[in-house]
Simulated scan of single mutants.
Amino acid sequence: MCLNVNVSLDLFIEYLQIEKNYSQYTIEHYQYDIREFFLFMSEQGIESASQVQYSDVRIFLTDLYNKKLKRKSVARKISCLRSFFKFLVREKIITENPFSLVSIPKSEKRLPQFFYEEELQVLFEACETDTALGQRNKALLELLYATGMRVGECAKITLKDLDFHISTVLVHGKGSKDRYIPFGSFAHEALEAYIHNGRKELMGKGGEDDHLFLNYRGKGISERGIRNVLDKLIEKSSLNGKIHPHMLRHTFATHLMANGADMRTVQELLGHAFLSSTQVYTHVTNEYLRNTYMSHHPRA
């Protein structure tokens, strides 16, 4: 990219970090999408943000669709670039936003996948509790289902984040937003068994580490490590298909709402910034209740 684009991008990244308080993960996505756009523009002979016009944007979008990208990916790139050019207009670096007239493609209406209670029971039964790693896996699974936290949040949990007196965990969420989430007796019991036994055994392999969940080397488990644990549990169980960590988060929310929890409470527990993100679970819950009815009512 040319110098003036790099300078503008650096200013925008600073804005995302300081004013918007975005996570490093989100910022890296913004950087990638913006650099990709200007690499394509340079191939068209355009070297500065001020030269980009609506017709150039249409050519770029046509290229994305020709690559058969998913609508969600295209929507993310449009949203990112629209924000970038809006920032440049605000800073008077350019006069017009070439993305202002571009509509974001509607995302595919796909309901979140979740486990039925019977399926979840099979998954819990796949956990062995006679080994250190087995105790860790059981505690991990119980906590993810009990709290609905994200896998990245789970990997960051330390011992001091747990309060066994009131059965709550302090979760460090997106955008440095912390929240307290309660957990029930099953998670409480599994966590205590792991901390007092399995975790001590794992600690002996790696020395001091404040992370709650450790890998086989005694170090804090990574997000990928948690995904591997869940994949192996699926393999041991009689369930079909692949599990992804968000399924436990979706299951947490679906089961809460199916049993009468109000949407605002679920929003708070999930750490959603907007209620619209939580509203999808009303559709999931309706389908859940319908399937339960059809499976159990004598005259369904």
Rank of each mutant, 00 (worst) to 15 (best):
R224G: 00
L9V: 05
Y22N: 06
T158I: 02
Y180W: 06
G260R: 14
K219H: 06
Q121Y: 12
N215T: 00
D210K: 07
Q279A: 05
S237H: 02
N286H: 14
R299V: 05
R199F: 06
L123P: 11
P112C: 08
S50W: 03
L111R: 04
S107R: 15
Y54A: 15
S167T: 08
E47L: 10
A155S: 12
I195W: 00
H296V: 14
E153A: 09
S238N: 14
R58L: 10
S295R: 14
Y30I: 13
Q17N: 09
F87D: 14
Y54T: 14
T251Y: 01
A300I: 08
E43Y: 08
Y194F: 02
K106W: 04
S176P: 10
K200P: 13
E96M: 14
F252E: 08
V229C: 06
E118K: 15
R264A: 05
N240E: 13
S167R: 10
D178A: 02
Q44E: 11
H172A: 03
R58A: 14
Q135M: 08
R264S: 11
E189M: 12
G204I: 01
D56H: 12
Q31F: 11
R71C: 05
A253V: 01
M247D: 14
G218F: 00
T285A: 07
I13H: 12
I27V: 06
G241T: 13
K77S: 06
Q135A: 01
R82A: 07
S50A: 06
G260W: 04
R58T: 14
I166R: 12
E223A: 14
L141C: 03
D63E: 09
S276E: 10
P298K: 09
L230H: 02
K236F: 06
P182Y: 00
R71H: 15
K138A: 02
Y25K: 07
K242W: 07
F115N: 00
A126S: 13
Q24A: 14
